[in-house]
Design a binder for these strands. Structure first.
Length: 975
DNA sequence: CCTATCTCTTA
DNA sequence: GTAAGAGATAGGT
């Protein structure tokens, strides 16, 4: 090697983990071998090599090597046994891919280097030194901060995912210190991932500032006494040795004895046939094609290489049907093959946020809309002033169109942003608030947009379109024909990760989107989106439409290949406009009632607080569990205290009730005080703030993709946890009222989850009991304890009820014992007895666990999936928790599906009956309506009928569904 | 100002 | 024992 040469060193182990996490899990080839990470690795390597060989880019490697970790045991473990001790084992489906990835590297004809006792980073450091000494340039392909210490005049890094060069200035910009100080910086901060201790309380910012101040770690440790901040000084003195050990852990060894010489790393021309054979063997159809083209190899004449057949057999999933896969080497046109190619193509696409168009003339917008009509598919996103759709003002909108949508290969996406109401910041002395130039008139633009959005022949794609629909509804625009990428992702992978656009983009496209905070700032210095400069807004907004369109291509195909289209089309997509209207309707809340209640609660709490301080003998913050625990258990010495996992005294309501039962006065008063202050702060004080000034009503927001089971959630405000159990709490419900001349109707399913359980587990006694309409808990008690239902003591029924709920929750002796305040052994006996009386339940639970472990998900009676990626965890606690959740999900989720079906059918049913009733709220098993008083009697039976028949015809349940409904002037009396 | 912890409300 | 959202405190940034 000589001056002018250029060595590329790829951090292979880093590549593997990036590839694994960037790509959808459970990608397997037809024989069952998981290959997600291999595929990602090959794509990344191929892209790197093609870019690097492209002489126009400027950097051309003459030498090249891929470096891997040898094993987890290295010399660092002798320095510090805890090093990387917190690392969990790599995911099961990744393990068999390690050896395949080394095969892949060899197939690319690249040196594949590792050394016992050393990490890849040490080898990289060693080769970098050798090359440097020979006068050559070095590029390290990695973004790992541990390697940044190597950066210097001849050595730089390259982050291939972000297409970013990392040199000395970039290191300083990111970490605040030059590369040669990175070791000292890391010694101070430590690294929780690798279990490098560092000094507690010192993060990157503080560390950089200290190094700036003292020059280096040794000087800092020697002069630590000069540091002003007490805690910081003490920590640095106390943990100085830890910092010194940390420095040795992060310092890379550049003197490893290497077997391959620099000369062995010369980059040879690619061996096309060899690589194509390997890729064919892996069934990477689209990469095979690209490589074959680039190397002018005739792929059809090359046999697929046999790779790692043993590992494949070992990891073969029982749920896979190899018969469905296409023969190796042919284009796989099954939905599965298509979905996979779409995902691969999307994952390697490059997104250029500087290529977007800003629309300032109406004619430009018209041209885009015409183009969209021609393609029949357009991604759409609005930009507004608020997250609250009911108060949001439209600021602009973005569109994205795919020029061509080929089944394979790259997607050519064009995207644009139409600013409508961008203003200059109000901080301007000369008035401010004026419109930014280059925007078309709002009215005319919206007319054009309306024509497009309401055209049923054009499919609109959005992310969380319920929000956009509600904003646009204020402008008289209704979206016809749409798909929602958030809902697609939710149907495909509920429980397997987030469904926000940022995480979807990273997961499926390997692309990190511009964050909203980057554009508007955050916290106090945040500016409204309307004040963002238009060019900056274009990059952000158009990217959202671009990404949404790419996601749609991947996810929609997966939906079909996974057989989930009907869940999406029946339970998910049609519910979005229904919820949009419910949110828009809102509910009337009586300010006076809440204000009066607040006053009463304040008085009650103040009186109790005085008594509490008196009994405690000192004044303290009653709302602080920590201070309270110290008073009760340290100062007063009350017995029976338990600690929370962080070592604090536990002061839960249950613990305080126990103390009260033992005759102590103070704990009782604390419980009462907590109830009053909770009601006041969370409900009576907070709810008036949610009354919309325009509508004078409260508009909650329903999240469609928030839970693993398929339930909705509600926020801002949450109307699904309004108190009902206590008399004091129920007063809050009296503030939820109907408009004059109207009534509220509450309709709720009776025991829906137990009915679902009876159906899915097929329990004869339960189905019979529900058919007969008997008291289900009393029946259970009678079966279990042999007590006749007539004259049954309430305590016996209470226990049976707790057990029934426990079953739904995936029962454990520990939990049941807690619930009933009995010994764990006694709870265990109850469970045993229950399973003896209802053996079908036990069978159901076991079968559900097996199903969850096999597939990684469980299914509701309507086909919705709930994923539990941690169900195979080696940690028994984590595993048990996931098992209980998996047992609960089909029950809770099927019930959630039932009410979703009812909600989708409710509006047409009401309309057909000529009713003016409006659906306002959903509380898991309850629907709240508002209707003219005169109409109530007529529509209650209709509502009940729609709800009771909601499972039909998809599922004919073995148990009837029962709904109770009632009308009143407020929610408390209607319920 | 942001985040983690604890507690409490619902189905 | 399941599923959520939210408020107050405490501790560090």
């Amino acid at each position: 090697m000589k001056k002018g040469d250029h060595l590329f060193l790829v951090d292979g182990s880093g590549y593997i983990f990036r590839a694994y996490h960037a790509l959808p899990p459970l990608t397997r080839k037809s024989d069952g071998l998981p290959v997600g990470a291999v595929s990602g690795f090959c794509n990344m390597l191929w892209k790197l090599l093609s870019d690097a060989r492209d002489t126009s880019v400027g950097v051309t490697p003459t030498h090249f090597a891929v470096i891997f970790d040898y094993s987890s045991k290295t010399f660092r473990n002798e320095l510090y046994p805890e090093y990387k001790a917190n690392r969990s084992a790599p995911p099961e489906d990744l393990v068999p891919q390690f050896s395949v990835i080394r095969e892949a590297t060899r197939a690319f004809d690249l040196p594949c280097i590792e050394a016992e006792g050393f990490e890849a980073d040490d080898l990289i450091a060693t080769y970098a030194r050798l090359a440097r000494e020979a006068g050559a340039e070095v590029t390290v392909i990695s973004s790992d901060k541990d390697l940044m210490q190597l950066v210097g005049p001849q050595v730089s890094m390259y982050d291939s995912m972000k297409d970013r060069q990392i040199g000395v200035p970039e290191v300083i910009e990111k970490w605040g210190v030059p590369p040669e100080k990175m070791i000292d910086l890391q010694a101070l901060t430590g690294d929780s991932v690798d279990n490098v201790p560092g000094i507690p309380g010192i993060g990157p910012k503080t560390a950089a500032q200290l190094i700036e101040q003292f020059g280096d770690l040794d000087t800092l440790l020697a002069r630590a006494g000069e540091i002003k901040q007490n805690k910081r000084r003490e920590n640095i003195i106390e943990f100085a040795d830890k910092a010194r050990i940390s420095r040795e852990l992060v310092r890379l060894r550049d003197d490893v004895e290497v077997t391959e010489k620099l000369e062995d790393l010369v980059l040879n021309p690619l061996d096309g046939p060899k690589l194509v054979a390997f890729l064919k063997g892996m069934e990477f159809t689209s990469l095979t094609r690209r490589v074959a083209e680039a190397t002018e190899t005739d792929a059809s004449n090359i046999d697929a290489a046999q790779v790692a057949v043993d590992a494949a057999a070992e990891m073969r999933g029982p749920d896979l049907d190899p018969g469905q896969a296409a023969p190796v080497g042919e284009i796989d046109d099954t939905p599965q093959g298509l979905a996979k190619r779409r995902a691969e193509a999307a994952g390697s696409a490059k997104i250029d946020t500087s290529a977007y168009e800003t629309l300032s003339e109406l004619s430009e917008l018209k041209a885009w809309c015409d183009q969209a009509r021609e393609t029949g598919l357009v991604a759409f996103d609005t930009e507004t002033t608020s997250l609250d759709a009911m108060q949001a003002e439209l600021v602009g909108f973005s569109l994205a169109i795919a020029e061509t949508a080929p089944d394979t290969g790259e997607l050519k996406v064009r995207a644009c942003y139409a600013p409508l109401a961008h203003t200059n910041g109000a901080g301007d002395l000369l008035g401010g608030g004026g419109a930014q130039p280059g925007q078309m008139p709002m009215r005319a633009a919206l007319d054009e947009l309306k024509a497009l959005l309401e055209d049923p022949a054009v499919l609109k794609v959005g992310q969380n379109l319920k929000y956009d629909m509600l904003v646009l509804a204020q402008h008289g625009i209704t979206i016809e024909s749409f798909d929602d990428t958030m809902l697609l992702s939710y149907v495909l992978e509920a429980g397997a990760g987030g469904h926000g656009m940022d995480s979807l983009s990273e997961r499926w496209l390997g692309h990190k989107t511009i964050s909203y905070k980057d554009v508007t700032g955050s916290g106090k210095s945040a500016i409204p989106f309307a004040e963002v400069q238009i060019d900056r807004a274009t990059a952000y907004a158009a990217e959202d439409a671009d990404v949404t369109l790419r996601l749609w291509h991947v996810l929609k195909q997966r939906l079909v290949s996974d057989g989930l289209a009907s869940v999406y089309e029946r339970l998910e997509r049609p519910l979005a406009p229904v919820l949009m209207r419910m949110e828009g309707n809102g509910i009337r809340v009586d300010r006076q009632i809440l204000s009066r209640l607040s006053g009463e609660l304040a008085q009650g709490a103040a009186a109790l607080e005085a008594e509490i301080q008196d009994l405690a003998g000192e004044s303290f913050n009653v709302g602080s569990p920590r201070q309270l625990g110290e008073i009760l258990f340290d100062k007063m010495g009350l017995p029976g205290g338990t600690k929370t996992k962080t070592g604090q005294w536990s002061t839960t309501a249950q613990a305080l009730e126990d103390l009260a039962a033992a005759g102590h006065e103070l704990p009782r008063k604390i419980v009462d005080w907590r109830q009053l202050t909770k009601l006041k702060s969370t409900y009576t004080d907070a709810l008036p703030g949610f009354i919309n000034p325009r509508t004078q009503r409260v508009h909650t927001s329903f999240a469609m993709a928030a839970t693993t089971t398929g339930r909705l959630s509600s926020s801002d405000p949450n109307i699904q946890n309004i108190p009902v159990r206590t008399a004091a709490g129920r007063k809050i419900r009296t503030a939820f009222i109907a408009e004059p001349g109207n009534v509220l109707i509450s309709a709720d399913y009776s025991q829906i989850e137990l009915r679902v359980l009876a159906h899915v587990a097929n329990i004869p006694q339960l189905t019979q009991a529900f058919a007969d309409g008997v008291d289900i808990h009393a029946m259970t008690a009678s079966e279990m304890f042999g007590v006749p239902v007539e004259g049954m003591p309430s305590e016996v029924r209470r226990r049976a009820k707790a057990i029934n709920f426990g079953i739904i929750y995936g029962i454990s002796a520990f939990g049941l014992a807690n619930q009933l305040s009995i010994e764990r052994s006694e709870a265990g006996d109850y469970i045993k007895k229950y399973f003896e009386r209802f053996p079908g339940i036990k069978d159901y639970m076991e079968a559900t666990k097996v199903e969850a472990k096999e597939h990684g998900y469980v299914t509701t009676i309507f086909g919705r999936r709930a994923h539990y990626p941690e169900i195979r965890s080696s940690n028994p606690q984590v595993r048990a928790f996931n098992e209980r959740a998996a047992i609960n999900a089909p029950i809770q989720g099927s019930a959630a599906d039932v009410i979703r079906r009812a909600m989708v059918r409710m509006e047409p049913a009401l309309e057909k009956a000529g009713a003016n009733a409006r659906m306002l709220l959903q509380v898991h098993d309850e629907l709240i309506f508002e209707a003219p008083e005169a109409e109530a009697e007529k529509i209650i039976p209709l509502i009940v009928e729609v709800m009771e028949n909601a499972a039909m015809p998809a599922v004919d349940m073995a148990v009837p569904l029962k709904v109770d409904a009632r009308a009143a002037l407020n929610w408390d009396e209607a319920h």
